[in-house]
Design a protein around this nucleic acid. Structure first.
Length: 1050
RNA sequence: GGGCGGAUAGCUCAGGGGUAGAGCGGCGCCUUUACAAGGCGCGGGUCGCAGGUUCGAAACCUGCUCCGCCCACCA
């Protein structure tokens, strides 16, 4: 199978019996790539461009299902657009992921060589990271290939490429020149574990941490007016070593006299001023006095600036207390906390404590509790960049899908703080700033020869690197060759869609917006589609620590890339996370198989067919052909509409439904009449329609399932003659949206209804027409509409017969079928079917079936009549709604009448009703031996068990409910909850007991090899009791509700 | 503290002012010559709770409960 697209070498068109994804998927990717299908042509502006930049995965490791989702959705868009005539370009790459990668390599280094990065030194360590990057970067590529992602590999980039590094330096220098990058000493979030500063975004807030609000007293240096101390409360006692003020509210009468006075630090003896600050202090909280630690708390830092306080650092970058911490110097910050409390208690200054749930800031990477520390860092002044990014969205130049994310984006953008971009790491873009011995800073694109201020030649480059997101923020244009003005940029910037997870909307999307607008003068993408998060089948977030991370490669191997892709797409609804379950993938693998076999069917029935490339509708003759073509058009329209709105699930489901349930379940079965028949014209038409539907299905499905569709395309193309088909499906054209032939759809609907009605009787009666009736007994079909009657006469009745296995079908142009005693009747809109079943059917069973149907009709009718008898409805509802309901009521009444008549005929029959005709006449029953005694006993036993279990469940509900009724008075809320739970539990209990017993009954019955009446009896008993249980549970619940409501009113 | 989602069949979810749906699972029948990874049929629902708007609410509004997520410097 080297050249399946070459008709010369094409082997037998017969396909393997089942679809083998491994064999097929392995074959195509390389060929696509070689033929250059993935490459976007920057010189081609004759076609509209459609471009996406792939969110670059971290080089830290391999792809997970989130990446698979990203790749799948983007590939769907790209392939769809390519088939729709766009010049598509999808740019791949990877991110160096500063902290993450450095940590992984450090860990590895420690594990294998027991060395730290400092043991190796910067240069050697970076070599190791590069080696790591080479290894994992290529694995990521393989994973994308396995998924079938048609990435433009010629344009692959890495955030630390030479080109991208140049862009980074360019951006840094320009922003610095514009005064939008500055260096300053202020409080930052410091991770004592990663030993670096972090941006606000890298802080994870842990809610509800069990903290303690601990109070102690600061003694006044000079007691005043009977006051000897000020009591303050803190969640971090160890920071009191760095206190340089006590703050009170200026309007707080209790402390007015103290403002300007001093307290003595109990552990260091320092004198500390009391200041008045209206911003920091809430007089009503605690004692109304706050200790101020400007060097270790963000609020206090501001107070320190406002009041010109001393900034005393008592915690170091290693998380240990500094020398300034006096008695606790050298201790870890948490040890120091205990020690400080002990020391203060010793001095009798402890003033109590209380539990205080609080939010803790942790490092996104290491989960270490962060420490606000004072240090020199580089910042991006963000407000001037944020404003245009806000306006771009306000003006709709970039829109978010789903829309709700607009608010999230806006809220964040409007409250944005300056961005700390320096990191104390080695892996990353080193900051292009140099210092001379005098401390002057030179910022330059290339290593400068001398200090720009004083001319000194001895320069030392800043050792820090930039935040990873600084370089990824440039991704949409840095990857296209910026700062050069390339053709690629001209053709493909702005990109069409940014497709990524909503978890990085701030980290990445917002920054790309700011940078793109600032440096390109244009938004980086027109649409931001934010996909849901992928979770495991239990809804848990996938994480390495939980061990529930799934490697997409394993899934691809097991079920096929097409199945995985389709599953992901089918589950991608807007606004809800994806819970991935294996069974679901299994189901879509079956779908691939279905498509395969439909194609196999076609291949087996294309004898004499030549696709001249003409419109199959011209050749189509039968109503079934026209019907499926109309359905196809409808599916095409819906699919395209869904894709345009990024409703991936709707698009996938539409195609799925069309292919499986319309093309396969209906049309293929219908077409057999023509394909197997003698009418050459009809046969040719059916062949053409079948080929057209399959070809269209391949194209519709190709974005979702690229491999199997390409394979089948090639096979079918070879079979029908290659003239009208491009060599590869990737060169095909996506089916075009167009008007649906509704007349064709409607004309055929009665035929489908007749088949349904007959199948319904067949199923309900548990008989096979062919066997039960044979040639002798006619099945009657009456249609009132002459057009439909003509259709049936013209040959459609043979399709009906084929699909229902009826041998003798008798047509009547009439409202009703002839009244045949002991027959089953089915009625629908404009038709009636009647199956004579004398000697076959159990009259009771048919009566029961009719009753069931009557009940359904009655219920519908009752509802609708009630509505129509309401004068308000008739007066105020739109006329068309009323009219529709009237018509439906009429239809229901007619159906009802027919069924009632039929029932009367049934009942009035003088045939003996209890005659066991089924036993004697049913062919299955012929082989059935009379049940032996033991089997019958077992069945009975099983049935009894069911009844008992169900009864028990009912009793349990009742007992619980009465207990709850008593409780309802005093504890309404709880009682209600309990009732709900009890009822639910009981119902479940009944259900499972019944299910279990049913199985037992079934097993026992099967062993006897018979279908004795006892089985039916047992089952009836089960149903009865189960129903009773449910009913009683409901009744009880209602009663309780009433009680509760009454109690509530009081 | 602020914000955003979600609650619909046993499970996973779609829908959305006018007849409550799909897939999976369950039950029954069918080894029919594309496919048993299949076909046909059946059963299964106080659409979270309470109010309101409306001729009509599962849908819209208000409040509540529970479950997720995001943002936030209150000692």
């Amino acid at each position: 199978m080297e050249q399946p697209n070459d008709p010369q070498q094409q082997p037998q068109p017969e396909l393997a019996k089942g679809y083998e994804h491994r064999e097929v998927e392995a074959r195509w990717y390389k060929r696509w790539k070689e033929r250059g299908y993935f490459h976007g042509d920057e010189h081609d502006r004759s076609r509209p461009a459609f471009s996406i930049v792939l969110p670059p995965p971290n080089v830290t490791g391999s792809l997970h299902l989130g990446h698979a989702l990203t790749a799948t959705l983007q590939d769907i868009l790209i392939r769809w657009k390519r088939l729709s005539g766009f010049n598509t370009m999808w740019l791949p790459g990877t991110d160096h992921a500063g902290i993450a990668t450095q940590m992984v390599v450090e860990k590895e280094l420690k594990r294998t060589e027991k060395k730290s990065r400092h043991d190796l030194g910067r240069e050697e360590f970076l070599k190791r990271v590069w080696a790591w990057k080479e290894q994992y970067g290529s694995r990521i590529g393989q994973q994308h290939e396995a998924l079938g992602a048609c990435l433009d590999w010629e344009r692959e980039r890495f955030t630390m490429d030479e080109g991208l590094s140049r862009a980074v330096r360019e951006v840094f220098v320009r922003l610095h020149e514009e005064g939008l990058i500055y260096r300053e000493k202020k409080l930052i979030n410091w991770c004592t574990d990663c030993r670096t500063a972090l941006s606000d975004l890298e802080v994870e807030h842990e809610e509800g941490h069990a903290g303690e609000l601990w109070s102690f007293a600061y003694p006044l240096v000079t007691p005043i007016g009977g006051l000897t101390e000020i009591v303050v409360a803190t969640t971090r006692p160890e920071t009191m070593l760095g206190d340089t003020a006590i703050a009170v509210h200026p309007d707080d009468a209790r402390y007015t006299a103290l403002v300007g006075r001093k307290v003595r630090h109990p552990l260091t003896g320092r004198e500390i001023p009391v200041v008045a600050d209206a911003i920091l202090v809430d007089a009503a909280f605690g004692t109304g006095a706050v200790k101020v630690t400007p060097a270790h708390d963000f609020n206090d830092f501001e107070v320190g600036r406002r009041h010109g306080l001393e900034f005393l650092t008592v915690i170091g970058f290693d998380g240990k207390m500094t020398a300034a911490a006096g008695p606790v110097a050298g201790l870890d910050r948490f040890e120091a906390r205990a020690e400080v409390k002990r020391l203060l208690a010793e001095q009798g200054l402890e003033r109590g404590s209380k539990p205080n749930p609080m939010a803790l800031g942790r490092c996104q990477r290491s989960q270490t509790i962060l420490e606000p520390l004072l240090s020199d860092q580089w910042y991006v002044k963000i407000a001037p960049l944020a404003q245009p990014a806000i306006e771009a969205v306000e003006q709709g130049r970039t829109r978010f899908v789903p829309e709700q994310w607009t608010n999230t984006y806006m809220a964040w953008m409007r409250n944005i703080h300056d961005w700390c971009i320096s990191r104390q790491l080695w892996w990353g873009h080193q900051i292009p700033a140099w210092y001379c011995p005098d401390g002057h800073v030179t910022v330059a694109r290339e290593t400068p020869g001398a200090c720009s201020t004083c001319g000194t030649a001895t320069l030392r480059q800043d050792e820090d690197v930039l935040d990873t997101w600084f370089s990824s923020g440039l991704w949409p244009f840095s990857t296209m060759g910026w700062p050069d003005r390339t053709e690629t940029l001209r053709t493909f910037y702005p990109t069409s869609v940014m497709e990524t997870g909503h978890d990085i909307i701030f980290f990445w999307v917002a920054r790309m917006m700011m940078m793109g607008i600032h440096f390109m003068g244009e938004v980086p993408f027109k649409t931001v589609y934010l996909h849901p998060m992928v979770r495991d089948s239990k809804g848990q977030k996938m994480s390495k620590t939980k061990g529930n991370v799934i490697d997409p490669l394993l899934v691809t191997e097991k079920h096929g890339a097409d199945a995985l892709r389709f599953t992901l797409a089918a589950l991608t609804a807007q606004g809800r996370d994806i819970k991935l379950a294996d069974e679901r993938i299994e189901g879509y693998r079956a779908f691939a198989n279905k498509l395969w076999n439909a194609s196999r069917f076609a291949l087996m029935n294309l004898e004499g067919h030549l696709d001249a490339g003409g419109d199959p509708r011209l050749a189509a003759r039968t109503p079934a052909d026209l019907w499926i073509l109309a359905r196809l058009q409808r599916a095409v329209n819906e699919t395209v509409e869904a894709l345009e709105a990024f409703r991936f699930n709707d698009a996938a489901n539409t195609v799925y439904h069309f292919v499986w349930h319309e093309l396969c379940d209906w049309y293929i079965e219908l077409s057999k009449e023509a394909l197997y028949g003698d009418d050459a014209g009809k046969k040719a038409a059916a062949q053409a329609v079948l080929v057209h539907c399959l070809k269209s299905s391949y194209l519709l499905l190709h974005p979702f399932m690229p491999f199997i569709t390409e394979e089948l395309w090639g096979v079918l193309r070879a079979r029908v003659g290659a003239a009208a088909w491009p060599d590869s499906i990737m060169e095909g054209r996506y089916p075009a949206v167009g008007p649906v032939d509704e007349a064709a759809e409607q004309a055929f609907t009665p035929i489908l209804g007749i088949i349904d009605a007959l199948r319904n009787i067949r199923g309900e009666m548990g008989i096979a027409f062919k066997v039960a009736l044979g040639q002798a007994t006619p099945v009657h079909v009456a249609v009132a509409d002459p057009a439909t009657h003509a259709l049936l006469l013209a040959g459609e009745s043979r399709r009906v017969a084929r699909l229902t296995n009826v041998e003798n079908l008798q047509l009547h142009l009439a409202v009703a079928t002839p009244r045949v005693p002991q027959s089953a009747v089915g009625v629908g809109n404009g038709f009636e079917v009647r199956v004579p079943l004398a000697g076959v059917i159990d009259v009771g069973a048919e009566t029961a079936r009719i009753d069931k149907e009557l009940a359904r009709v009655d219920a519908d009718l009752e509802g609708i009549e009630k509505k129509l008898s309401n004068p308000n409805f008739v007066a105020r509802a739109p006329a068309e709604v009323v009219e529709k309901d009237r018509a439906r009521a009429e239809e229901l009444r007619s159906t009802r009448q027919k069924l009632t008549n039929h029932r009367a005929v049934m009942q009035g029959s003088d045939q003996p009703q209890e005659e066991q005709t089924m036993e004697t006449n049913n062919p299955n029953a012929n082989q059935a031996p009379t049940p032996s005694q033991p089997v019958g006993e077992r069945v009975e036993q099983a049935a009894a068990a069911v009844v008992e279990a169900a009864r028990d469940a009912v009793h349990a509900v009742q007992a619980q409910a009465s207990e709850l009724e008593r409780k309802a008075g005093p504890a309404i809320a709880q009682a209600r909850k309990d009732v709900k739970q009890a009822v639910a539990k009981a119902r479940k209990g009944v259900k499972s007991a019944v299910a279990k017993a049913r199985k037992a009954v079934k097993k026992a019955t099967r062993k006897g090899g018979t279908k004795v009446a006892k089985k039916g009896a047992a089952r009836k008993a089960v149903k009865k009791v189960a129903k009773k249980a449910a009913t009683r549970a409901k009744a009880v619940k209602k009663a309780v509700k009433k009680v509760v409501r009454k109690a509530k009113k009081k």
